[in-house]
């Protein structure tokens, strides 16, 4: 019985005749902060789309808990890109109200808590927000659901380092023990302290999946140096 796992096996994904993920394998235990690292275009967002279920044309298997079904995976995961396509003329409050109707596990109280901590004004229209505030809002919405897997795609893009620290420490205080939070980022140092594990994507594969503390203990390398070692000389590879 391996019900508290998230796994992708022999996952291959193509779009526009372009191979994006090729026979990718990933197996994570639930309950951790996981850093999904990789250069731009390495397939981080695609992997999240596949896990969440908005991308469907893959071969292989994807499982969250015991479920492979797409609807179940949408129920079991909360994706920060789910805001894509919303009418930007609506206020943050209106958008959250609709989320509360569309997602049965959405907690308006949790959302209010996040927006207070993130200093967002819910009477503002989405279109009036800066890029950083938009990211914060997407994170608030994503984390306000009560589910197993949270997928945050570059949540700290456009956010200054002071605020970033606050958001991270807020996330640590918030995270339920059983929940898994997957954060994609291409600046490792943004998030490295809170990560239990890192998954490095490169050349359409998972090239490394390690526990961060073990990594430091065994190699004496910083996580960033370890991550960058995969990209050394890659400029001449192509």
């Amino acid at each position: 019985m391996t019900t508290n796992k998230i796994s992708a096996e022999h996952l291959t994904y193509k779009r526009n005749r372009h191979l994006i993920l090729d026979d990718l394998n990933l197996n994570v235990q639930q309950g951790h902060f996981i850093g999904l690292l990789g250069a731009n275009g390495a397939g981080k967002t695609t992997l999240m789309r596949l896990l969440n279920g908005v991308a469907t044309n893959f071969t292989g298997t994807i499982q969250i808990g015991a479920s492979e079904s797409i609807v179940d995976r949408k129920q079991l995961s909360s994706f920060s890109e789910s805001l894509k396509g919303v009418n930007a003329n609506r206020t943050l409050h209106q958008i959250a109200t609709d989320y509360a109707i569309m997602y049965l596990d959405f907690s308006e109280k949790a959302f209010e808590n996040f927006t207070n901590k993130y200093e967002l004004d819910c009477h503002q229209k989405l279109s009036a927000l800066s890029k950083g505030n938009r990211k914060k809002f997407a994170t608030a919405l994503t984390l306000s659901r009560q589910t197993q897997l949270y997928l945050l795609d570059e949540p700290f893009e456009g956010i200054d380092s002071m605020t970033r620290k606050r958001l991270i420490s807020n996330m640590i205080a918030w995270k339920p023990a059983a929940a898994t939070v997957m954060i994609s980022d291409h600046h490792v140092n943004d998030v490295v302290n809170i990560l239990d594990e890192i998954v490095v994507l490169k050349d359409k594969h998972v090239v490394a999946h390690r526990n961060t503390e073990q990594l430091r203990e065994e190699t004496g390398m910083s996580v960033e140096a370890y991550y960058e070692s995969f990209y050394e000389g890659s400029a001449t590879d192509d």
Partner: peptide
């Protein structure tokens, strides 16, 4: 949890 949030490190750590 509070200590982790103050130090901005993971709870497990």
């Amino acid at each position: 949890r509070q200590l982790a949030a103050e130090l901005t490190v993971n709870v497990n750590t």
